[in-house]
Amino acid sequence: MIRLIVGRLLFMVPAALLIITFLFALFHLIPGDPAVMLAGDNAPRSVVDGIREAYGFDQPLHIQYGRYMAKVLQGDLGISNYTRDPVVNSVIPRIINTAQLAFLSMLFAMVVSLLLGCVSAMYWNRPLDKIVTIVSLLGICTPVFVTGLLAIYFFSIYLDWLPISGMSSWRHFILPVITLGAFQAAVLTRMVRSCMVDALGKDYITTARAKGAPELLVVFKHALRNALLPIVTLFGLGLGHTLGGSVVTETIFNWPGLGRLMVNSILTRDLPITQGSIFFFAMIFILVNLIVDLVYAWVDPRIRYD
């Protein structure tokens, strides 16, 4: 177990270096003068030259690469073209906002999908199961921005119950969390259901029934505990997709998160911010993946006790 943790943590190092390398490559992949991109389109000549000097854009590639790597490793991701603030300062608070949204959405999705998935598997092939299946199918076919617009129209405009955008009170959380969570819930419900149907067909379930265990115990202890192995992985993937979906959700609800920051920076050609948000998103995904692996190892006794 400890070897697994150390191994996975070590995996993060080359991954992080690869990502920084990619961010560096962005300077030269994007058409245009990298110094101008960093300074902003309307920056005065002196600023552009200063940046060219600092990053060594007039030097050979490996020296530029070395300088950039050194800067990033010191926590310097550059300065925003517009606010002129260090990128790290504007990115960090956004990360927290995105984390709140993604975490709550995922929590919503997990609770809903576990409940619906188990109930669906319990009533396999009966009307209740079919209703759940159809609803979740519709859910996975409805993109977040469609659900979001419908929710805004219905709850904010038509009923006037909930605010349209921002995140200044708990009421602002409801629509974004449910919009983003509902899509994930639909995806996960289907998967939880199929994991549970699978688990309920196993021999040890017959053993549990033969013991005289009541159906609720059979489903929620014997089957669910086994189905948890694949479900944990699915939830991990789900968390990744929720973070991905947060980009769109944040844009719909004007949520001051990392995703909206990234999209806006791309639209306004604010390269340092784009690089910063890509960097942090990537690190978050790798971290989430690591945590999922560890949780998986912890849930499976075959890994934990060997």
Partner: peptide
């Protein structure tokens, strides 16, 4: 494969 498609796509759109 760790990264969601939309994320990869956005990053590629930058280029």
């Amino acid at each position: 494969l760790i990264f969601p498609i939309i994320m990869l796509a956005i990053v590629i759109v930058v280029v």
